[in-house]
Computed example of a mutant assay.
Amino acid sequence: MHQDSKRLKAHRTGINLDEYEDNLIDALVDYTGIEKATLLRQMVMREALEMLGVRDIHEFDAVSIAVSNAIPKLH
C-alpha cells in the first residue's frame, strides 16, 4: 500500500503522435529499456517541472505544501 494515495498512477491521459514521433519514442524505448508509458510520463513530468522552474518533484511538493498551507491563513 502506498503511503500517499495521491501518488497512485490512476489518471490516464492520451496523446496522438505521428509515425515519425512514435518511431522516435520507440527508438528511445529500445535504447533505454524503459517501458513506453513510463518513459513518456518521465519526459512529460520533467518538462512540466522545468516550465515551472523547479528542479524535481520533491521541490514541487515542498512549494505546493507551503502554498496550500499559506492560502487558508490569508482568508
Rank of each mutant, 00 (worst) to 15 (best):
M1W: 10
M1H: 11
M1Q: 08
H2K: 10
H2C: 12
Q3P: 02
D4S: 05
D4H: 11
D4G: 03
S5E: 14
K6I: 02
K6M: 09
L8P: 05
K9E: 01
A10R: 15
A10I: 14
A10N: 15
A10L: 14
A10G: 15
R12F: 13
R12N: 03
T13P: 06
G14T: 03
G14R: 06
G14W: 02
I15T: 06
I15L: 04
N16E: 12
N16H: 13
N16K: 13
L17S: 06
L17H: 02
E19S: 01
E19H: 05
Y20D: 11
E21L: 13
E21R: 01
E21K: 00
D22M: 07
N23R: 06
N23T: 08
L24I: 09
I25D: 03
D26M: 09
A27I: 08
A27N: 09
A27K: 15
A27V: 04
L28R: 05
L28F: 12
V29A: 02
D30C: 13
D30H: 13
Y31S: 13
Y31R: 14
Y31W: 13
T32H: 07
I34K: 01
I34D: 01
I34Y: 00
I34N: 00
E35N: 10
E35Y: 06
K36V: 09
K36S: 08
K36G: 09
A37G: 02
A37L: 01
A37S: 03
A37I: 00
T38C: 10
T38W: 01
T38N: 11
L39P: 00
L39G: 01
L40T: 03
L40D: 01
Q42S: 15
M43G: 15
M43S: 14
M43Y: 09
V44A: 14
V44H: 06
V44C: 09
M45F: 02
M45S: 11
M45N: 12
R46L: 11
R46G: 12
E47V: 09
E47L: 06
E47W: 07
A48G: 08
A48T: 06
L49R: 02
E50D: 14
E50T: 10
M51A: 08
M51F: 15
L52R: 05
L52G: 08
G53M: 05
G53D: 07
V54M: 04
V54K: 02
R55P: 10
R55T: 10
R55F: 15
I57P: 00
I57A: 12
I57E: 04
H58V: 11
E59V: 02
E59H: 05
E59P: 00
E59I: 00
E59A: 00
F60Q: 11
F60V: 04
F60R: 09
F60C: 09
D61N: 13
D61T: 11
A62N: 11
A62V: 12
A62S: 13
V63K: 14
V63E: 14
V63D: 11
V63Y: 13
S64V: 15
S64Q: 15
I65D: 06
I65K: 12
A66P: 03
V67T: 01
V67S: 05
S68T: 09
S68I: 05
S68Y: 07
S68C: 11
S68R: 08
N69P: 04
I71D: 12
P72T: 03
P72G: 03
K73R: 12
K73D: 03
K73T: 08
L74C: 10
L74H: 13
L74N: 14
H75D: 07
H75A: 14
